[in-house]
């Protein structure tokens, strides 16, 4: 461990490499977390299957890439398919738990997460997969820092997608209806908004966002059937740290999480990388508690 820290000081360019990689994966964490915050804020559903949606999107892109379709084109296909899947999940499960207490939605989506990860495992096996983009890899500083082109493209795609979703929420009729429902579902209903359709759309939109995030993850990182829970926890960490309805917060928290995770993975070794995500969750929750206590409140 100390050796690794020593290495970071000896070769400062390594920091650049880690930070850059953290930025690239962090942008995707932020994207998935934005989807979680959307569903949480609008319909008060805490989706523990968030990460599994991401992994599903990843497998879609990967599967298409094995059939010769480039993962960049696989991304929109994954989004469309996941949108449809989200709609089905909403109609079959979420609609029935939406007005129950919060643990119901948490547990129902946990059950869904189990089903998804096990089905993926049965279908594709437990091996780690990557959707190859076959793009060039750029070297900087005499090869000390390397960045694959696909990572730049992924960052741009993530930013572009986020901008599109935000624009959609701000300017489209549907987006306005979603925001109205989030503020006061009953009032929205009285004003003639079909809240059930809004919820269905919001949940499906989140699934599509996850699909995109998953396709990006499959290109620049790795996917595996059981990695879903890790992504779910990452999304919760980001949303908890940023708070609901705080877009800049989500972006900053997502990027920081990416950086923090890769740093701790480097310093403590890869086997504790997952641990560092969970440890961050616990730290974020503890900090939130101290903050809330100052407001004489609990974290809820």
């Amino acid at each position: 461990m100390l050796d690794n820290i020593y290495l970071l000081i000896q070769a400062p360019l390594l920091n650049v490499q880690i930070l850059l990689d953290g930025l690239f994966v962090g942008s995707i964490f932020a994207l998935a977390a934005y989807g979680l915050a959307l569903v949480w804020g609008v319909m008060n559903v805490k989706n523990l299957a968030q990460g599994d949606f991401v992994i599903m999107g990843g497998y879609t892109a990967w599967l298409l890439s094995t059939w010769g379709i480039h993962p960049i084109f696989g991304l929109p296909i994954a989004m469309v398919l996941m949108f449809g899947f989200g709609w089905v999940v909403y109609v079959v499960i979420i609609r029935r738990v939406i007005d129950k207490d919060m643990f119901t939605s948490l547990l129902a989506t946990f059950g869904l997460a189990l089903v998804i990860q096990q089905l993926l495992n049965l279908a594709f096996g437990p091996e780690v997969q990557v959707a190859e983009s076959h793009f060039a890899i750029n070297s900087f500083f005499d090869g000390l820092v390397t960045v694959a082109n696909i990572k730049f493209i992924s960052l741009l795609l993530a930013a572009g997608l986020a901008a599109m979703v935000v624009g959609f929420m701000k300017f489209s009729r549907m987006g306005q209806a979603i925001r109205a429902t989030a503020q006061d579902a009953r009032a929205a209903k009285v004003m003639g908004i079909d809240t059930d359709r809004i919820y269905a759309f919001t949940f499906s939109l989140n699934a599509a966002i996850c699909g995109a995030a998953g396709a990006l993850i499959s290109m620049i990182w790795v996917i595996q059937p059981f990695f879903g829970i890790g992504h779910s926890i990452r999304s919760f960490v980001v949303v908890t740290a940023a708070g609901l309805g705080n877009l800049p917060g989500v972006i900053i928290a997502g990027l920081s999480l990416g950086g923090a995770e890769l740093y701790s993975g480097f310093v403590f070794g890869a086997e504790l990388q997952q641990f560092s995500v969970v440890a961050l969750l616990v730290i974020v929750l503890a900090v939130r508690q101290v903050q809330q206590r100052r407001h004489r409140q609990a974290v809820k």
Binding site: M102, I233, F236, T240, V282, L285, A298, K300
Partner: peptide
Amino acid sequence: VVFGLRGPYFAIGTLGFTL
């Protein structure tokens, strides 16, 4: 540490501890 957390935060916090 966790009893200041309510609802979903408690569930996820305890899940985090165990993992």
